[in-house]
Amino acid sequence: MTPQAFSQYDVRWGLWAVLALICASLWPAAPAVAADEPDLIFRRSTVFKWLSPNDKLATYGVDDPEVEGVSCHFTVPEKGGYKGWLGLAEEVSDISLACRQIGPIRFKAKSDQGEDMFRQRRSLFFKKMQIVRGCDAKRNVLVYMVYSDRLIEGSPKNSTSSVPIMPWGATDAAVQKCGEFIQ
């Protein structure tokens, strides 16, 4: 191999290595749970921008993948502008949450207190939003908390929603106890 061919090989190998590193860092990590992507309910513009997309508030719905009969809705701000359009803007941590019983509650498996119910990336690299589930066994209430965190520093902004486990209809006489499934 000639010195010129060797240096071209090194350059190509270096470019492939850099490309592989970039792809690996952008590839989203496997979600902690098997929750589907949230369903977009609606968006509402909050800040008008002349030549680029507006800032918006977006409301999404997601079903708890481990607890049948519970659904959560959360509202998140979405940055507009060119950075938001290209997916480069870091989203703010203001997230609201409401969870409700939408049918008979059935636990699919045992889980831990504070286990992730849903996780979503909120910036290109370092920030993610998480909805976690817990159980207030004394009151037989499921408790959901949403918060965002960063690799270096967390965010104190959060929201909590409670779902009392109640009978659903005439056929749901036996109410499960969350303390038997969430430890």
Rank of each mutant, 00 (worst) to 15 (best):
G154W: 02
C135Q: 07
I105G: 04
A35C: 06
I165T: 12
P104V: 08
S159C: 11
S25D: 09
E78K: 07
T75S: 14
E68A: 11
L88E: 00
H73S: 14
A24V: 03
L40F: 07
G87C: 08
L151I: 11
L21P: 04
M129P: 06
L88N: 06
W50Y: 07
E90W: 05
G103K: 06
A17V: 09
S148E: 10
P3R: 11
A173I: 12
M1N: 14
S148N: 01
W27P: 02
L40Y: 02
P53N: 06
V33K: 13
V175N: 12
G69L: 04
G84S: 10
A5N: 09
C23G: 13
G179Q: 15
P167S: 06
R150S: 12
S148K: 04
R139S: 07
K110Q: 08
W13A: 15
L26S: 12
G87Q: 00
I41T: 02
G14M: 12
Q183P: 13
F42A: 10
M166V: 15
P28V: 07
M117A: 04
Q101D: 09
N54R: 06
I182W: 14
L57F: 10
T160A: 11
G69P: 07
G80A: 04
E37P: 02
A5M: 10
R100M: 10
G61H: 03
D149T: 14
N158W: 05
F126S: 12
M1D: 08
E115H: 05
D116C: 02
P156G: 06
N54L: 03
R121T: 10
A20W: 05
V33Q: 15
V92C: 04
G84P: 04
S52P: 00
A170R: 13
E66F: 09
A20G: 14
M145G: 04
I95D: 00
A24Y: 04
Q113F: 03
M117H: 02
F118W: 03
A137C: 09
E66K: 09
S148C: 06
V70R: 09
K110H: 11
L142K: 01
W27N: 01
C99Q: 08
P167L: 11
K127S: 04
R150L: 10
E91T: 05
R122D: 00
V76D: 05
T160H: 08
P38C: 06
W50H: 05
R119D: 14
F118A: 05
H73R: 15
V18F: 13
A109K: 12
L86F: 14
A17W: 11
S161Q: 08
L88V: 11
D172K: 10
V62S: 03
S71P: 00
N158E: 01
L40E: 11
S159Q: 08
A58R: 06
A32S: 13
G81E: 00
D64G: 12
G14P: 01
A109T: 02
K79F: 00
G154Y: 02
S111E: 09
P31Y: 09
S93Q: 03
K108R: 15
I131L: 07
A5R: 13
E180V: 00
L26C: 08
